[in-house]
Design a binder for these strands. Structure first.
Length: 877
RNA sequence: GCCCGGAUGGUGAAAUCGGCAGACACAGCGGACUUAAAAUCCGCAGACCUUAACCGGUCGUGGGGGUUCAAGUCCCCCUCCGGGCACCA
């Protein structure tokens, strides 16, 4: 062979992703039906594979690459297993960055967003992701957001959407309201340095608390979700059973309290559907309702504690300037502490109002205090303080010298030190007729007693609050409500009127100047603002707030099933075929926000009769973060690795495969470029092998494996073991790192057998079988690569529509296995025995081994442990 | 403070049911090919001790204890790292 020919051959056999990937990308793009799901009559089992849709920032990052590589491998695998796969993608396209970009570059948010979508879509195609673009959803387009409006009207009709004035979290940077879920340690979730302020605004709310119990109970059934996510949601919902008890205020109040709705006696219950009726609405100051989970300790209550914002505290303050100043100081302390990271560390302060309340159980007068550690927005904003049985109350009582009275005792044994907070094996004492009851029993009976006598009731309190969805932003879904200037019969002027569905969509005005000034930008667009009332035809103003973008992502995956529908959000028939999502994949950072709203929205749609499923997703997978130099990739740390760079250097296949190989998908992944290079080298080896045996593979398709050579047998055994292993990995554990390692081992073995193959010691049919299956095994991980080799070895059809290989147990079986032999637990030798050898045979073989004999000689074999297929351990003395 | 993860060679990791710890890679070292280098291929490779070398030995999965013939894996205690919740009454 001449030198020129050698070079020529080498060049041909060289793996060049820069050439083959664009080639296949172009071919796939030319076939728009390639990844299109079939209908419900396909006769195949359905599989809905979903990755969380990205915000169109304009750039894919490594977190996306990882997320989508996992989803894509799974989707392709399921296709090869004969499923009807829905694998869609879309854009969470409303949101603040588009407005910020508009300010900065003077680009309209819409243009900026659509450009970014185009750029990211191109990157996704370059990655070779198997999305069905015919179902693409962009939430910022009217054909999507009109259905947000439609849902809003439905919720308004059914009482799930309502308006109330309330204290809201206001981010001065975003110039808008944030949901509780978007406030992290008193700061904005998007602006770590910005302290969230409290403002009073009238806002639209969605009554998610109506579903609090179902959202909580449903978690039990979500076995395909990570326990971690379920726990986070449980904590977030924060269900707490207890009782409300009314303490009469001694002497009542001379003035009517100017009760703020958010701090009324039942503020927490305002959020639940309707509430359950409660007295004391008339004179807010004649009664203090406390919430307690330990009504059984009420005989030990030695004070009542109010939040500084409590209506009664305000009423007292109104009569006493000195007290007002002290309460104001407490309020300030509380506010500061809430804004800092550690509200929990606040030093407890309080002030005695000098007034008294009456414990309805024993008629005792207890002083009313205001405490800086009492939260206005949890429970009723008032507690009964039982120092003997609550750590916080104990601390407070010690500080201010309040009495401590033990009313709970351990059932048996010595009485523990105070505060004694246990409920298990504890009984009531010093509680008159309740003495001797267990805590749990007393809690129920005493709450029921309170209800019978009209001074309380059992109740349930949640940490979860109704979802405030109003945002004073431009780039979001307009809320489809108007305020009629004339008013209507029975409705005050400025009455709230819902638009009819026929008026939808309420379009976002196209030309708008974005400024940084506060208030809703839509309020400055006269042609948007001024409209007519759908009821009376008179002048009306539109609602100028837009919806929280979490509305968009709460139901987008239903739209995928019927993305072009212009008469309904989606067809129930289609949704019921595809739902629930079989596998949802995304980052754990959405464990509470997105994933709890999605569950809520699903239940609402079910109750509207649109779908049958109770939960959106059967299984959820949360992948780990991508780390570089030990830290999360971020611009500020300067450790960002660009997917484009990686793809340019090593190709999409190597980049994707590395993302799967470097760590199990649920763990954090340290990005090391050398690792990507390693994968690229591995693919190069496979490429060379497949090329070398391409001819043999083409010709060797005859099923002539009757007489197998030793080489055939050894290679086929490893092949079928590998098939079995990878198939198993896909079925649940998803440790693709070990799947890929197994393929590497197979390749190493083929390379080691090359000399034998070339010497004619392998049959062409076996070589063909191995090369062909090797390509199939790689198809979910490296689709461009597999498609190219599939063609080169002369196969017809689309590689990732070819049936996934089935492991042949016969071929995979070892006929001889290695058994380690230990003496007193230490490895002495490894012996070979037939795979089907029984205990006695293995034992005999072990005892006959020379090394073992030498070790045992002169000592007593006390015991022989034989674990067939595993090991032998001789216990020797 | 409470609840979940995690800690294994120089690095990423593997060991799926209590059974050979370190598969598979990366980086490294040695060799082949080359005028040379790159690429590629072959080989070595947990630490320590012993030896001229082979051979051989000891230790070793964050630390300490325990169960077991056998522990990275199970039990108890502790340390550190990451995440979530947190005066939620």
């Amino acid at each position: 062979m001449s030198e020129i020919e050698t070079n020529e051959t080498e060049r041909q056999a060289r793996y060049n992703p820069a050439e083959i990937e664009p080639k296949w990308q172009a071919r796939w793009d030319a076939d728009p039906k390639l990844y299109t799901a079939e209908g419900h009559d396909s006769g195949k089992p359905k599989f809905y594979c979903l990755e969380m849709l990205p915000y169109p920032s304009g750039q894919l990052h490594m977190g996306h690459v990882r997320n989508y590589s996992i989803g894509d491998a799974l989707a392709r695998f399921m296709w090869m297993r004969g499923h009807n796969v829905l694998h869609p993608m879309g854009w969470d396209a409303f949101g603040l960055p588009a407005e910020n970009a508009a300010l900065k570059n003077n680009t309209p948010p819409r243009d900026w967003t659509l450009q970014n979508i185009a750029a990211m879509k191109k990157q996704m195609r370059r990655m070779g992701l198997s999305y069905d673009w015919s179902t693409e959803v962009a939430t910022c387009l009217p054909d999507y957001y009109r259905w947000n409006q439609w849902f809003f009207l439905k919720m308004y009709e059914t009482g799930l959407a309502y308006r109330k004035k309330s204290k809201v979290n206001w981010c001065p940077d975003c110039q808008t309201v944030l949901a509780n879920e978007q406030v992290v340690n008193g700061r904005c979730w998007r602006h770590e340095d910005t302290i969230v302020e409290q403002r009073d605004l009238t806002q639209w709310f969605l009554r998610i608390t109506k579903y609090a119990d179902e959202l909580l109970d449903g978690l039990e059934k979500l076995e395909g979700w990570p326990e971690k996510v379920r726990t986070m949601q449980r904590n977030w919902i924060g269900r707490s059973e207890g009782a409300l008890v009314n303490f009469a205020v001694e002497g009542g109040s001379s003035k009517e309290a100017t009760a703020d709705p958010s701090t009324s006696l039942r503020s927490a219950q305002d959020d639940t559907a309707g509430g359950t009726g409660q007295s004391a609405q008339g004179d807010a100051c004649s009664v203090i309702t406390v919430f307690t989970t330990r009504v059984d300790t009420i005989y030990g209550a030695t004070s009542v504690q109010l939040a500084p914002d409590h209506a009664v505290a305000k009423a007292f303050a109104a009569e006493d300037a000195d007290l007002a100043a002290k309460i104001e100081a407490l309020r300030e302390e509380q506010k500061k502490a809430r804004e800092s990271d550690d509200f929990g560390a606040i030093e407890k302060h309080g002030v005695n109002t000098g007034r008294f309340a009456i414990n309805p159980f024993n008629g005792e007068r207890v002083p009313i205090w205001v405490g800086n550690y009492i939260l206005a927005d949890y429970g009723t904003g008032a507690i009964m303080s039982v120092p003997a049985h609550d750590e916080r109350d104990f601390e407070f009582a010690q500080k201010y010298g309040l009495p401590v009275r033990r009313v709970i005792a351990a059932e048996e044994g010595e009485q523990p030190d105070l505060p004694f907070t246990a409920e298990e094996n504890a009984v009531l004492i010093n509680s008159r007729e309740w003495d001797g009851l267990s805590c749990t029993e007393a809690q129920q009976k005493m709450a029921a007693f309170a209800k019978q006598n009209g001074f309380g009731e059992p109740t349930v309190t949640y940490r979860l609050k109704d979802w405030g969805v109003s945002r004073q932003r431009y780039w979001g879904t307009p809320i489809p409500m108007v305020y009629c200037e004339n008013g209507h019969a029975g409705v005050e002027p400025g009455g709230v009127v819902a638009l009819p569905a026929s008026a939808l969509p309420v379009l976002l005005p196209e030309s708008i100047e974005i400024t940084q000034e506060g208030g809703s930008p839509l309020g400055k667009v006269p042609e948007f603002l001024h409209t007519t009332c759908p009821v009376c035809g008179g002048p009306a103003r539109r609602e100028t707030d837009t919806m929280d973008t979490f509305v968009d992502s709460s139901w987008y995956f239903y739209r995928y099933t019927d993305a072009k529908d212009d008469t309904t959000p989606f067809s129930s028939e289609k949704a019921n075929y595809w739902f629930p999502i079989d596998q949802y994949i995304g980052g754990v950072e959405h464990a509470i926000l997105h994933l709890i709203y999605s569950r809520f929205w699903t239940k609402v749609m079910r109750d509207l009769g649109m779908i049958n499923n109770d939960e959106p997703a059967e299984r959820l997978f949360t992948q780990g973060m991508v780390i570089k130099d030990g830290a999360k990739m971020s611009k500020s740390k300067g450790n960002v690795v660009s997917p484009d760079d990686m793809i340019a250097r090593y190709g999409a296949d190597a980049t994707r495969m590395y993302a799967l190989f470097a760590a199990p998908p649920d763990r954090d992944l340290e990005w090391q470029e050398e690792g990507v290079a390693g994968i690229s080298r591995f693919l190069g080896r496979v490429y060379r092998l497949a090329n070398k045996y391409a001819e043999t593979t083409r010709l060797g398709r005859i099923p002539s494996l009757v007489s197998r050579t030793q080489t055939d047998q050894a290679l086929l055994r490893t092949l079928h073991q590998t098939i079995a292993k990878i198939t198993l990995d896909f079925s649940g554990r998803w440790h693709f790192n070990t799947s890929i390692a197994a393929i590497m081992s197979l390749v190493n073995e083929i390379v080691a057998a090359e000399a034998a193959i070339d010497a004619g010691q392998a049959s062409p049919a076996a070589v063909a079988e191995i090369v062909r299956n090797l390509v199939l095994l790689l198809a979910p991980f490296a689709p461009f690569f597999a498609a190219e080799l599939w063609e080169q070895i002369g196969e017809e059809g689309v590689v990732f529509r070819t049936p996934w290989p089935v492991a042949d147990e016969e071929l995979a079986r070892e006929n001889e296995i290695e058994i380690p032999v230990q003496v007193n637990g230490k490895l002495v030798n490894v012996i070979k025995v037939p795979a089907d050898a029984d205990q006695d045979e293995i034992k005999a073989a072990a005892l006959a081994d020379e090394k073992v004999k030498a070790r045992v000689e002169g000592r007593n074999v006390v015991k022989v442990i034989v674990v067939p297929g595993k090991l032998v351990n001789l216990v020797v003395k």
